[in-house]
Amino acid sequence: MKLIGVEFLANQIADGNFTAKVVFNHNGAIFFPVHEQHRDQKMPGLSYADESAGTALAGMVSPGKIEIRNHRDFSSERVTAIINQLLAAAELAALGNWEFTYRGQKLR
């Protein structure tokens, strides 16, 4: 699993009050600033596109919480499995007790 922007995210977490963005799937995650667009973040096997056209999920990151946008190809169970895979990465240990929501439901 490839992770991009973990240093950026760590700096945001250390600063405290922040909002950031993420795109992710089973291949990895990209964390980036809010002034950039989800659809512009890409790597092999990971591409978000509007209207559920891409292969990745989009999310908004704030202290202690990640809100994930709906994607017609991703069930809640699949999203939960991907989140668990992401949280297994040592680089994302700081997110271990965060709340993740999808389709208006708390996944963890």
Results as ranks from 00 to 15, higher is better:
Leu9Phe: 01
Thr55Gln: 08
Gly104Lys: 09
Glu67Asp: 15
His26Asn: 15
Lys2Ile: 15
Glu7Lys: 12
Asp73Met: 10
Phe8Met: 02
Arg108Thr: 12
His35Thr: 09
Lys106Thr: 15
Gly59Val: 10
Glu77Pro: 03
Val23Ser: 02
Gly5Ala: 08
Leu107Asn: 06
Asn97Gln: 13
Lys106Ile: 15
Met43Glu: 04
Glu91Tyr: 09
Ala93Asn: 09
Pro33Arg: 03
Asn70Phe: 11
Ser62Asn: 14
Met43His: 00
Lys21Gly: 02
Ala58Trp: 09
Val79Trp: 06
Thr19Glu: 07
Asp50Val: 13
Leu46Glu: 05
Glu51Trp: 12
Arg39Gly: 00
Gly96Cys: 00
Val23Glu: 02
Asn27Arg: 15
Ile4Gly: 01
Pro33Ile: 09
Glu36Gln: 15
Gly54Arg: 08
Gly16Cys: 04
Val6Ile: 11
Met60Arg: 07
Gln41Glu: 12
Ala14Trp: 05
Thr55Val: 07
Arg78Cys: 10
Val6Pro: 01
Ala88Cys: 01
Gly104His: 08
Ile4Met: 11
Glu51Val: 11
Leu86Arg: 03
Lys106Glu: 04
Ala56Tyr: 05
Val61Asn: 08
Gln105Tyr: 11
Arg72Val: 14
Asn25Glu: 07
Gln12Cys: 14
Phe100Arg: 06
Ala14Thr: 12
Trp98Gln: 03
His35Ile: 03
Ile30Ala: 01
Asn84His: 10
Trp98Thr: 02
Lys65Asp: 11
Thr101Tyr: 08
Leu107Ala: 07
Met60Ile: 13
Ala20Gly: 11
Ala58Val: 07
Lys2Gln: 14
Lys106Leu: 14
Arg72Thr: 14
Ala89Leu: 03
Gln105Thr: 10
Phe31Trp: 12
Asn70Ile: 08
Phe8Gln: 01
Ser76Asp: 11
Leu57His: 05
Gly96Thr: 02
Glu36Met: 12
Arg108Gln: 13
Lys106Asp: 01
Val23Leu: 05
Thr55His: 08
Ala81Val: 12
Ala58Thr: 09
Ile66Asp: 02
Ala81His: 04
Asn70Thr: 11
Val79Gly: 02
Gly5Ser: 08
Lys42Cys: 07
Ser75Met: 11
Arg78Ile: 13
Val79Glu: 07
Asn97Asp: 15
Ala89Val: 00
Thr55Asp: 10
Phe8His: 05
His26Phe: 06
Ile66Val: 15
Leu92Pro: 00
His71Trp: 00
Asp15Ile: 00
Glu7Ala: 06
Arg78His: 14
Leu87Gly: 01
Ile66His: 00
His71Leu: 04
Val61Ile: 15
Arg69Gln: 14
Trp98Asp: 05
Leu92Trp: 06
Gly59Cys: 10
Gly54Asp: 06
His26Lys: 14
Lys2Cys: 13
Asn84Trp: 04
Leu86Asp: 04
Leu86Ala: 05
Asn70Leu: 10
Asp15Phe: 02
Thr101Pro: 02
Ala58Lys: 07
Thr19Phe: 01
Glu77Ile: 04
Ala90Thr: 13
Lys21Arg: 15
